[in-house]
């Protein structure tokens, strides 16, 4: 039956999406342009130059930035992976294990890191690590990050799971699938967009964190935010803009690559679904 309109599209939604992308990229576009500025200042344009990119790799602080970027990346990947796993299991328990006494309490506990202002978590965690004589270093940063990443991973995962009917897994189990099989073969694939969303949110929240990291890190251990914070707060410097622009470029390249690779897999997936 022919529809009078296509329900996939609402007038204006494309416009809003493009506006959204414009808002997201405009400030960074400005940063990218000014990273090629010959002058020190962010406000005065003095001609095209690559000096800040050279500075990033050869300047006195290049080793520090490289190490910091590496630390940030490793911590963000590890924290997001662990937090997403914990959140997925927890969401399954909360939404797929009936009503039980600890349920509401669990939801509260999972949301807890979200509700405490960062500075409080920072001071409290530092006091706590000191109280148990845990030496500060990369490990303390990772542990702290895992904790505050969990709610960010949990929210999209649980939102997604609420939309998936239990009948799928029930059907699978009626057909003699074990619970583990129902979980890994049915629920997890259906959960993927939620899990990916959760992972991305956890990843970027870890990558961004300054306050907690700055308190719980050991001396000399830097993440990218702690390494650049002072320089940026006193007026963003061109070498920082160059770093940001490169980060942006690297992520765009990585995403494009993974998309190109992923296209093949998705084609297969679509075919499978069609068969179904």
């Amino acid at each position: 039956m022919a529809k009078p309109y296509d329900l996939r599209h609402y007038p204006g939604f494309l416009g809003v999406t493009l506006l959204c992308l414009l808002i997201l990229y405009a400030p960074l576009g400005v940063v990218a342009v000014y990273s090629f500025n010959g002058s020190q200042s962010i406000t005065i344009w003095e001609g095209f130059s690559l000096r800040w990119y050279v500075d990033v790799f050869t300047g006195p602080e290049s080793a520090k930035f490289k190490q910091a970027a590496w630390n940030s990346f490793i911590i963000a990947i590890a924290a997001a992976t662990i937090a997403t796993s914990i959140a997925t299991l927890a969401a399954t328990a909360v939404l797929r294990a009936g009503k039980f006494r600890m349920r509401t309490l669990s939801i509260g506990l999972i949301s807890l890191p979200l509700m405490v202002p960062e500075i409080v978590t920072a001071v409290a965690t530092l006091i706590f690590f000191n109280a148990i004589a845990f030496e500060r270093g990369l490990m303390t940063i990772l542990l702290a990050h895992i904790a505050f990443c969990i709610p960010f991973a949990y929210m999209p995962i649980s939102a997604r799971m609420q939309g998936i009917e239990a009948s799928y897994e029930q059907a699978a189990m009626d057909l003699y699938a074990t619970r583990r099989q129902a979980f890994t073969r049915i629920l997890l694939p259906l959960m993927m967009p939620g899990i990916v969303s959760g992972f991305i949110l956890a990843f970027i929240i870890s990558l961004d964190d300054f306050i907690i990291t700055n308190f719980v890190k050991g001396a000399g251990v830097e993440t990218l935010p702690t390494a650049i914070f002072g320089a940026v707060k006193q007026g963003i410097k061109p070498n920082i803009m160059a770093i940001s622009t490169m980060l942006l470029a690297v992520s765009i390249v990585m995403v494009t690559l993974s998309w190109l690779i992923g296209r093949k897999d998705q084609k297969n997936l679509i075919q499978q679904r069609k068969k179904k």
Partner: peptide, 14 residues
């Protein structure tokens, strides 16, 4: 949507 599919495993999941 709620179910009791993983009722026995919930302690381990949480």
């Amino acid at each position: 949507v709620q179910s009791e599919t993983y009722r026995e495993a919930r302690t381990w999941l949480l």
